[in-house]
Protein backbone atom coordinates (compact mmCIF):
# COMPACT_ATOMS: atom_id res chain seq x y z
CA UNK A 1 0.00 0.00 0.00
CA UNK A 2 1.04 3.57 -0.56
CA UNK A 3 1.63 5.95 2.28
CA UNK A 4 -0.55 9.03 1.94
CA UNK A 5 0.20 10.92 5.11
CA UNK A 6 3.29 10.53 7.18
CA UNK A 7 4.95 12.44 10.00
CA UNK A 8 8.56 11.95 11.02
CA UNK A 9 9.62 12.81 14.56
CA UNK A 10 7.22 15.71 14.72
CA UNK A 11 7.82 17.97 17.69
CA UNK A 12 6.10 21.06 19.01
CA UNK A 13 7.24 22.99 22.05
CA UNK A 14 5.44 25.93 23.60
CA UNK A 15 8.14 27.50 25.73
CA UNK A 16 9.12 24.73 28.12
CA UNK A 17 6.08 22.57 27.42
CA UNK A 18 6.41 19.79 24.89
CA UNK A 19 2.95 19.41 23.34
CA UNK A 20 4.07 16.90 20.73
CA UNK A 21 7.19 14.82 21.20
CA UNK A 22 8.66 12.72 18.37
CA UNK A 23 5.26 11.94 16.91
CA UNK A 24 5.47 9.58 13.97
CA UNK A 25 2.31 8.65 12.12
CA UNK A 26 1.93 6.59 8.96
CA UNK A 27 -1.41 6.53 7.16
CA UNK A 28 -1.88 4.31 4.14
CA UNK A 29 -4.26 5.09 1.38
CA UNK A 30 -7.84 4.49 2.46
CA UNK A 31 -6.85 4.02 6.11
CA UNK A 32 -9.38 4.42 8.89
CA UNK A 33 -7.03 5.54 11.58
CA UNK A 34 -8.02 6.77 15.03
CA UNK A 35 -5.92 8.96 17.26
CA UNK A 36 -6.93 8.60 20.87
CA UNK A 37 -5.58 9.69 24.22
CA UNK A 38 -6.62 11.31 27.46
CA UNK A 39 -7.45 15.01 27.73
CA UNK A 40 -4.45 17.21 27.10
CA UNK A 41 -2.51 14.43 25.39
CA UNK A 42 -1.81 16.71 22.43
CA UNK A 43 -4.28 15.30 19.90
CA UNK A 44 -5.49 18.67 18.69
CA UNK A 45 -1.91 19.92 18.55
CA UNK A 46 -1.13 17.07 16.16
CA UNK A 47 -4.09 18.02 13.94
CA UNK A 48 -3.02 21.65 13.99
CA UNK A 49 0.48 20.62 12.96
CA UNK A 50 -0.85 18.42 10.16
CA UNK A 51 -3.07 21.18 8.78
CA UNK A 52 -0.46 23.90 9.14
CA UNK A 53 -2.26 26.02 11.73
CA UNK A 54 0.84 25.44 13.88
CA UNK A 55 4.39 25.06 12.62
CA UNK A 56 6.40 22.24 14.20
CA UNK A 57 9.52 23.01 16.21
CA UNK A 58 11.19 20.13 14.39
CA UNK A 59 10.30 17.09 12.31
CA UNK A 60 8.61 16.73 8.95
CA UNK A 61 5.18 16.11 7.47
CA UNK A 62 4.78 14.32 4.15
CA UNK A 63 1.70 14.16 1.95
CA UNK A 64 1.93 11.62 -0.88
CA UNK A 65 5.64 11.40 -0.16
CA UNK A 66 6.22 15.13 -0.64
CA UNK A 67 7.27 17.29 2.22
CA UNK A 68 4.61 19.84 3.22
CA UNK A 69 6.03 20.91 6.58
CA UNK A 70 6.18 24.57 5.58
CA UNK A 71 3.22 24.69 3.19
CA UNK A 72 0.53 27.26 4.06
CA UNK A 73 -2.73 25.86 5.51
CA UNK A 74 -4.83 26.90 2.50
CA UNK A 75 -2.37 25.26 0.11
CA UNK A 76 -2.60 22.00 2.05
CA UNK A 77 -6.34 22.06 1.40
CA UNK A 78 -5.62 22.38 -2.30
CA UNK A 79 -3.29 19.43 -2.03
CA UNK A 80 -6.23 17.38 -0.77
CA UNK A 81 -6.21 17.62 3.01
CA UNK A 82 -9.29 18.89 4.84
CA UNK A 83 -10.35 18.92 8.45
CA UNK A 84 -13.25 19.48 10.77
CA UNK A 85 -12.93 21.31 14.04
CA UNK A 86 -13.73 20.07 17.51
CA UNK A 87 -15.43 23.38 18.22
CA UNK A 88 -17.50 24.56 15.26
CA UNK A 89 -15.67 27.01 13.05
CA UNK A 90 -18.33 28.31 10.71
CA UNK A 91 -19.26 31.49 8.87
CA UNK A 92 -21.94 33.02 11.07
CA UNK A 93 -23.30 35.45 8.48
CA UNK A 94 -23.55 32.98 5.61
CA UNK A 95 -26.34 30.52 4.94
CA UNK A 96 -25.58 26.81 4.40
CA UNK A 97 -26.11 27.35 0.66
CA UNK A 98 -23.54 30.13 0.63
CA UNK A 99 -21.13 28.29 2.92
CA UNK A 100 -21.06 25.21 0.71
CA UNK A 101 -21.10 27.26 -2.50
CA UNK A 102 -18.05 29.10 -1.21
CA UNK A 103 -16.10 25.94 -0.40
CA UNK A 104 -16.97 24.34 -3.73
CA UNK A 105 -15.97 27.49 -5.65
CA UNK A 106 -12.66 27.53 -3.83
CA UNK A 107 -12.03 23.90 -4.65
CA UNK A 108 -12.78 24.50 -8.32
CA UNK A 109 -10.38 27.45 -8.31
CA UNK A 110 -13.10 29.97 -9.08
CA UNK A 111 -12.93 31.67 -5.69
CA UNK A 112 -11.17 34.70 -7.12
CA UNK A 113 -13.69 35.21 -9.92
CA UNK A 114 -15.22 38.55 -9.04
CA UNK A 115 -17.32 38.90 -12.17
CA UNK A 116 -19.41 35.76 -11.74
CA UNK A 117 -22.25 35.24 -9.37
CA UNK A 118 -22.00 32.39 -6.90
CA UNK A 119 -23.23 29.14 -8.35
CA UNK A 120 -23.28 30.31 -11.96
CA UNK A 121 -20.87 27.55 -12.88
CA UNK A 122 -22.35 24.29 -14.00
CA UNK A 123 -22.27 21.60 -11.38
CA UNK A 124 -21.86 23.85 -8.34
CA UNK A 125 -25.57 24.01 -7.63
CA UNK A 126 -25.98 20.24 -8.01
CA UNK A 127 -23.14 19.66 -5.63
CA UNK A 128 -24.60 22.07 -3.08
CA UNK A 129 -27.90 20.19 -3.35
CA UNK A 130 -26.20 16.84 -2.93
CA UNK A 131 -24.36 17.95 0.22
CA UNK A 132 -27.46 19.60 1.70
CA UNK A 133 -29.43 16.41 1.22
CA UNK A 134 -26.74 14.11 2.49
CA UNK A 135 -26.25 16.18 5.65
CA UNK A 136 -29.96 16.89 6.19
CA UNK A 137 -29.56 20.62 5.88
CA UNK A 138 -32.21 21.24 3.24
CA UNK A 139 -34.80 22.61 5.67
CA UNK A 140 -32.38 25.22 7.03
CA UNK A 141 -30.45 25.93 3.85
CA UNK A 142 -31.48 29.58 3.82
CA UNK A 143 -31.03 30.43 7.47
CA UNK A 144 -28.04 32.34 8.75
CA UNK A 145 -25.60 29.83 10.20
CA UNK A 146 -25.45 31.78 13.46
CA UNK A 147 -29.06 30.91 14.30
CA UNK A 148 -28.99 27.22 13.35
CA UNK A 149 -29.49 24.64 16.12
CA UNK A 150 -26.25 23.11 17.37
CA UNK A 151 -26.82 19.74 15.72
CA UNK A 152 -27.33 21.39 12.33
CA UNK A 153 -24.22 23.50 12.79
CA UNK A 154 -22.31 20.33 13.54
CA UNK A 155 -23.57 18.72 10.35
CA UNK A 156 -22.60 21.83 8.39
CA UNK A 157 -19.16 21.72 9.99
CA UNK A 158 -18.63 18.26 8.53
CA UNK A 159 -20.39 19.00 5.23
CA UNK A 160 -17.97 21.91 4.78
CA UNK A 161 -14.98 19.58 5.03
CA UNK A 162 -16.65 17.19 2.56
CA UNK A 163 -17.17 20.07 0.14
CA UNK A 164 -13.39 20.28 -0.15
CA UNK A 165 -13.44 16.70 -1.55
CA UNK A 166 -10.39 15.73 0.46
CA UNK A 167 -8.21 12.71 -0.16
CA UNK A 168 -7.15 12.96 3.46
CA UNK A 169 -9.80 13.92 5.98
CA UNK A 170 -8.98 14.83 9.56
CA UNK A 171 -11.98 14.59 11.87
CA UNK A 172 -11.57 16.24 15.26
CA UNK A 173 -14.26 14.72 17.50
CA UNK A 174 -16.96 14.97 14.83
CA UNK A 175 -19.79 13.84 17.09
CA UNK A 176 -18.85 15.99 20.07
CA UNK A 177 -21.92 17.42 21.76
CA UNK A 178 -24.31 16.20 19.09
CA UNK A 179 -27.78 15.01 20.14
CA UNK A 180 -28.33 11.29 19.65
CA UNK A 181 -30.66 11.63 16.67
CA UNK A 182 -28.10 13.50 14.62
CA UNK A 183 -25.19 11.56 16.03
CA UNK A 184 -26.19 8.42 14.13
CA UNK A 185 -26.53 10.51 11.01
CA UNK A 186 -23.01 11.88 11.33
CA UNK A 187 -21.52 8.49 12.04
CA UNK A 188 -23.35 6.90 9.13
CA UNK A 189 -22.09 9.62 6.85
CA UNK A 190 -18.53 9.16 7.97
CA UNK A 191 -18.85 5.40 7.56
CA UNK A 192 -20.08 5.88 4.01
CA UNK A 193 -17.03 7.85 2.93
CA UNK A 194 -15.41 6.56 -0.26
CA UNK A 195 -12.87 3.87 0.56
CA UNK A 196 -10.03 5.68 -1.20
CA UNK A 197 -10.36 8.64 1.20
CA UNK A 198 -7.87 8.40 4.03
CA UNK A 199 -9.35 9.32 7.39
CA UNK A 200 -7.70 10.28 10.65
CA UNK A 201 -10.26 10.38 13.46
CA UNK A 202 -9.66 12.01 16.80
CA UNK A 203 -12.19 10.76 19.27
CA UNK A 204 -12.97 10.32 22.93
CA UNK A 205 -15.87 7.97 22.49
CA UNK A 206 -14.47 4.42 22.34
CA UNK A 207 -17.63 3.00 20.79
CA UNK A 208 -17.11 5.24 17.80
CA UNK A 209 -13.43 4.42 17.63
CA UNK A 210 -13.98 0.67 17.71
CA UNK A 211 -16.78 0.73 15.18
CA UNK A 212 -14.91 2.93 12.75
CA UNK A 213 -11.16 2.48 12.92
CA UNK A 214 -8.95 -0.32 11.69
CA UNK A 215 -5.83 1.10 13.27
CA UNK A 216 -5.37 3.13 16.43
CA UNK A 217 -2.61 5.36 17.73
CA UNK A 218 -2.58 6.26 21.40
CA UNK A 219 -1.10 9.61 22.34
CA UNK A 220 -0.14 10.28 25.96
CA UNK A 221 1.60 13.46 27.14
CA UNK A 222 2.47 14.38 23.58
CA UNK A 223 4.15 11.03 22.89
CA UNK A 224 2.98 8.11 20.84
CA UNK A 225 2.44 5.32 23.36
CA UNK A 226 1.17 2.53 21.13
CA UNK A 227 0.20 2.09 17.52
CA UNK A 228 -1.52 -0.98 16.17
CA UNK A 229 -4.71 -2.72 15.15
CA UNK A 230 -7.85 -2.31 17.22
CA UNK A 231 -7.23 -5.70 18.82
CA UNK A 232 -3.60 -5.04 19.67
CA UNK A 233 -4.32 -1.65 21.18
CA UNK A 234 -7.34 -2.72 23.21
CA UNK A 235 -5.33 -5.55 24.79
CA UNK A 236 -2.22 -3.51 25.43
CA UNK A 237 -1.60 -3.29 29.20
CA UNK A 238 -0.10 0.22 28.94
CA UNK A 239 -3.20 1.50 27.19
CA UNK A 240 -5.38 -0.19 29.79
CA UNK A 241 -3.37 1.51 32.49
CA UNK A 242 -3.86 4.93 30.91
CA UNK A 243 -7.56 4.43 30.52
CA UNK A 244 -7.97 2.52 33.81
CA UNK A 245 -9.49 -0.28 31.82
CA UNK A 246 -12.89 1.33 31.77
CA UNK A 247 -13.48 1.48 28.06
CA UNK A 248 -11.71 -1.73 27.23
CA UNK A 249 -13.63 -4.19 29.28
CA UNK A 250 -15.79 -5.20 26.37
Amino acid sequence: MTLVLETRALEKRFGGIVAANQVSLRLEKGARHALIGPNGAGKTTVINLLTGVLRPSSGEILLDGKEITNVEPHDRVRLGMARTFQINQLFADLTPIETLGLAISERLGTGTHWWRTVGSRAGVVDEIAELLERFRLVDVMQERTAILPYGKQRLLEIALAFACRPRVLLLDEPAAGVPDAERQEILATIASLPTDVTVLLIEHDMDIVFSFADRISVLVNGEMLVEGTVDEVSHDPRVRAVYLGEAFDG
Partner: peptide, 14 residues
Protein backbone atom coordinates in the same frame (compact mmCIF):
# COMPACT_ATOMS: atom_id res chain seq x y z
CA UNK B 1 -17.40 37.82 4.15
CA UNK B 2 -16.13 34.39 5.14
CA UNK B 3 -12.71 35.79 6.05
CA UNK B 4 -14.33 38.56 8.06
CA UNK B 5 -16.36 35.99 9.95
CA UNK B 6 -13.73 33.31 10.47
CA UNK B 7 -10.23 33.58 8.99
CA UNK B 8 -9.19 30.25 10.52
CA UNK B 9 -11.92 28.30 8.76
CA UNK B 10 -11.45 30.31 5.58
CA UNK B 11 -7.90 29.01 5.33
CA UNK B 12 -9.22 25.53 6.13
CA UNK B 13 -11.41 25.53 3.02
CA UNK B 14 -8.48 26.61 0.86
Amino acid sequence: VAIKGNPLRSAAVG
